[in-house]
Simulated scan of single mutants.
Amino acid sequence: MSKAFRGHQAVDRVSFTVEPGTVTGFLGPNGAGKTTTLRCLLGLVRPDGGEGLVNGRSYASLPNPLAEVGAVLEATNLHPGRTGRNHLRVMCDAAGLPVSRAEEVLAEVGIAEAGNKRVGGYSMGMRQRLSLAGALLGDPGVLILDEPANGLDPEGIEWLRRFLRHQAHEKGVAVLVSSHVLAEVEQTVDDVVIIARGRLVHQGTLTEVTGDGESLHDAFLRLTSAGTDPHTVGDPK
């Protein structure tokens, strides 16, 4: 998949697969093309070449997108005057889901007691959890999350780790998570996809990228500074 903006190649022939039952970390320096890739995958930006597929279909062609893919790209697109519970109920109505799902996902993300509080009074971490709740409403088989740890305190980050691994390993969900918190990514993911300057530089298991005792942080720095040829970046020389 490729996408350029005003002559700048933001994404250059990036191709990878996220398997069911795994947490895949989507990593890259600032400006590497991660968010553009996710937005193309979710039909928010039209790629210039190639396409992003969810369960073998483009997002636009999914008959019931919320039931197949849940996504969180930012936690700021929430109406401050609505309660968390009403926010989710509106989403249920729009998607033809029973409003009881709002109660279930509020409990699943651990903010049931804040359901009647206006979103404008939520902390950043609570907004993140509410956005995650919205992504879960349709009980999708795919989750796409951009920086879900933003605003979470250490306890919240530990909760997120357990949550993501439960979704993948217990429910069989394919989880794609973009994050800059490499130490936490290393404790959470099964696979990694790394891009730099809009191009894929590594795809494989976490064990493969951190072989010989190398930390994910060190491997990330090596790979993202080694060039953009995916056939040569595995060589640290």
Rank of each mutant, 00 (worst) to 15 (best):
S2I: 11
A4S: 15
R6W: 12
G7Y: 12
H8Y: 15
H8G: 00
H8D: 01
Q9I: 13
Q9D: 14
A10R: 10
A10Y: 13
V11F: 11
R13V: 13
R13N: 15
V18Y: 11
G21E: 04
T22K: 14
F26I: 11
A32K: 08
G33P: 13
T35E: 06
L38F: 10
L41V: 09
L41R: 05
L42K: 03
L42E: 06
L42D: 07
L44Q: 14
R46S: 14
P47D: 07
G50Y: 06
G52L: 05
L53G: 06
R57G: 00
S58K: 14
S58M: 13
S58V: 13
L62E: 01
L66R: 13
E68L: 10
V69K: 00
G70F: 00
G70E: 00
A71K: 01
T76L: 02
P80T: 00
T83E: 01
G84M: 04
H87D: 07
H87R: 04
M91W: 12
M91G: 03
A94H: 12
A94L: 15
S100W: 07
A102S: 13
E104H: 11
V105I: 05
L106R: 05
V109Q: 01
G110W: 09
I111H: 06
I111K: 02
V119I: 15
G120S: 07
S123I: 10
S123W: 08
M124H: 15
G125N: 05
G125T: 07
G125V: 08
M126S: 01
R127W: 04
R129T: 05
L132G: 03
G134I: 05
G134H: 02
A135T: 08
G138M: 01
D139A: 14
P140C: 00
P140W: 00
G141T: 03
V142G: 01
V142F: 00
I144N: 00
I144V: 15
D146N: 10
D153N: 08
D153L: 05
D153H: 11
P154R: 05
G156Q: 03
E158M: 12
W159L: 08
L160M: 11
R161Q: 12
R162I: 08
A168M: 02
E170Q: 14
G172D: 05
V173M: 01
V173G: 02
V177P: 10
L182V: 06
L182H: 07
Q187S: 10
T188G: 10
V189K: 02
D190R: 05
V192N: 01
V193W: 09
I195W: 08
A196F: 06
G198P: 11
G198A: 02
R199V: 03
V201H: 00
G204T: 08
T207F: 07
V209Y: 01
T210L: 01
D212G: 00
D212W: 05
G213N: 05
L216E: 04
L216S: 05
H217T: 14
D218A: 13
L221S: 07
T224R: 01
S225W: 07
A226C: 13
G227V: 11
T228W: 07
D235Q: 12
P236F: 08
K237W: 15
